[in-house]
Simulated scan of single mutants.
Amino acid sequence: MALTTETGSGVLALTPDLAYLRLSIVNVVFYGDPKKGDGWVLIDTGLSTSRKSIVDAAERRFGPNAKPSAIIMTHGHFDHAGSLEALALHWDVPVYAHPLEFSYLNGKASYPPADPFVGGGLMALLSPLFPRSPVNVEPRLKPLPPDQTLPHMPGWKWLHTPGHAPGHISLWRETDRTLISGDAVVTTGQESVYEALMQTPEMHGPPRYFTPDWNAAENSVKLLNALEPELVISGHGPPVKGAGMRERLRHLATNLT
């Protein structure tokens, strides 16, 4: 079940301090309560064409010339870091990521080639055409704190959830059991173009064609399932919540093959 309220900004509010913006097949998340005016954080940056949509939505939600305190990256794949260089330059803000993602965010390494023969579906077959080259935000790139706190996000912690990417992280708030899962768990199928466009709520592991370590991905799903979240906001698909979501997540954790 989704819990969304249209704010008039193109952003869908989930809680007073959490909202997300769907950009084609991928989501970005805004953390911060616009009524309090005490700062906000952007989580992931969408596609290379997403810069204007994100800036416009941020200014409508947080006010003219709204500037985040930081950008936090779940990982550096093209659909999550596509507008990172442009937004980091536009706002001149720090970018936080797991150190194992640094080589993909500082221009030094490309991700491994996609595997078009896993998962089935047209998206999988097209995956070798997706960009793999790194972005470069090295002057603004900072490691996430080793104590698992999240900068400018009090009450939150980051969790290392590799498999889809070596430094993939998910974000967790214990007080209301809210999980921002990135691509460790997604809520609509990504191998099929139809499923990706229709956004039918389902529970899936990470997109197979871009997941080189399936054993690690399985362990990450089990870790997230053990949290028993109340609300899941994923990198792909609508937010889902409640007992039905947890039941589907438990099933996924024991059947991710």
Rank of each mutant, 00 (worst) to 15 (best):
A19T: 02
R60Y: 13
L105D: 04
H98C: 05
L21K: 07
L87G: 08
L84P: 08
A86W: 08
L84C: 11
Y104M: 06
E101K: 04
W91T: 04
F117E: 10
G82L: 06
L42Y: 03
V29Q: 05
I25N: 09
V29E: 04
N27T: 07
S53G: 12
R22E: 11
E85L: 10
P64V: 13
S103C: 12
T49R: 07
F62R: 04
K36T: 14
V41R: 00
P113V: 01
V95Y: 03
F117T: 13
S24R: 15
N106L: 01
P112N: 04
D92H: 12
A86T: 10
T74D: 05
P34C: 01
V29P: 03
G76K: 08
A109R: 13
F30A: 07
S110E: 10
E85K: 13
H77W: 12
K35M: 09
E101G: 05
A66F: 09
A86N: 09
F78W: 15
A86K: 14
H98E: 06
E101S: 12
G39R: 05
A81K: 05
V26A: 15
W91N: 05
F78H: 15
N106G: 02
M73G: 07
V28D: 04
V26H: 13
A81D: 03
S50P: 02
T49A: 08
A57P: 11
R60S: 14
G39T: 08
D92K: 13
R61S: 14
L21C: 10
